[in-house]
């Protein structure tokens, strides 16, 4: 039996990936099983899905603690989640990243294969949906499942044009991966019992919480795009702040010498024709993005009356 653990973020299709993997293995004549860690996560939050492939009927119902393979759909997860926990000694980790295997931040002893699935998906599918691309990579890297079965399972789930482009993306990743060399890893990773417990604080009587403690969650890790503010054109209307569901835009008003200096600098720039008058007059007011929490939804950019906010692809 081979066990696969998929790490992704809500909305990236991790659960679908596990299901497609199981369907593809079934197409290959194997017994298979796919299931999520049943959570309440919304788009962007870390999620885990599991798949088992076997020649015999699978009875095991527990989560997967010692995977043969790990698929990481989003390289930003590596800093947040112990993605290689329990990985078998000869296990393989497939990471969606444009970086090389050495640079994704995993231990040197692990057999890491990277693939720029986001790039491939944006190129072929037109959207940063990487799950099918990574399935192609999985087939190429592990040889556990035939690429034809992967294609079949994708087409069965997504008929028509959408299925076809997903298949193309998977095929591209497959080809890139089959050429990659296998590096046997040396040691097994320490096993963790389920999810790593975030906190060991004593629990109160009844589930009573402290105000604003959600701020430890870096929801900024979820984003694919981030807003870039053009403060030289900004009229300081504050609509961006009002349109942020995540309280990730803050208004800051400089006072005293700082304000005077900012206004003076802005006046000079305005005279030189470099910034707008409205912006110069309120140069002491700043609208600042809190990158720790911005999920990159893009509402602020959509609502900015002067189109002064541009959504840029996050470099990961």
């Amino acid at each position: 039996m081979k066990e696969v653990r998929i790490h992704g973020r809500g909305g990236q299709g991790s659960v679908t990936a596990a299901e497609l993997l199981a369907v593809a293995a079934f197409e290959d004549g194997k017994f298979s099983q796919a299931f999520p860690f049943f959570g309440v996560e919304r788009r962007g939050a870390p999620v885990t899905a599991f798949a088992r492939l076997s020649d015999k009927k699978i009875r095991l119902r527990s989560q997967i603690y010692e995977p043969d393979y790990v698929i990481v759909q989003d390289a930003t997860l590596i800093s947040a989640v112990d993605v290689t926990a329990g990985l078998k000694p000869d296990g393989i980790v497939i990471v969606n990243s444009e970086k090389s295997a050495e640079d994704v931040g995993l231990d040197a002893g692990i057999d890491v294969r990277t693939i720029d699935a986001t790039g491939i998906a944006l190129d072929i599918i037109g959207r940063p949906i990487v799950n099918t691309t990574l399935l192609g990579a999985f087939a190429g890297a592990t040889g556990e499942i035939g690429i034809d079965s992967i294609k079949q399972s994708i087409l069965a789930r997504f008929p028509g044009k959408i299925g076809e482009v997903n298949v193309q993306a998977a095929e591209k990743a497959y080809k890139l991966m089959t050429s990659a060399k296998r590096k046997p890893s040396k040691k097994s990773r320490p096993r963790k019992n389920g999810t790593a417990y975030e906190s060991h604080e004593k629990i109160p009587i009844g589930a009573i919480g402290k105000p604003g403690t959600s701020e430890v969650t870096r929801t900024g890790d979820w984003r694919v795009f981030y807003p870039e503010f053009d403060m030289d054109q900004c009229s300081r209307c504050g609509k961006c702040l009002e349109s942020c569901p995540d309280a990730a835009i803050h208004k800051r008003e400089l006072t005293g010498r700082e304000a005077t200096e900012a206004l003076k600098r802005a006046e000079e720039l305005e005279k030189a024709g470099k910034i707008k008058k409205a912006a110069a007059k309120k140069a002491h007011i700043l609208y600042e993005l809190d990158p720790m929490y911005c999920k990159g939804c893009g509402i602020c950019a959509n609502e900015c009356p002067i189109q002064g906010i541009k959504m840029k692809l996050e470099e990961k």
Partner: peptide, 19 residues
Amino acid sequence: AKYDEQSIDLLASGHKACA
């Protein structure tokens, strides 16, 4: 620098709503 009163966010960042 001081934060504008309108910027006081009583629903804190880090909540897990979708983008």
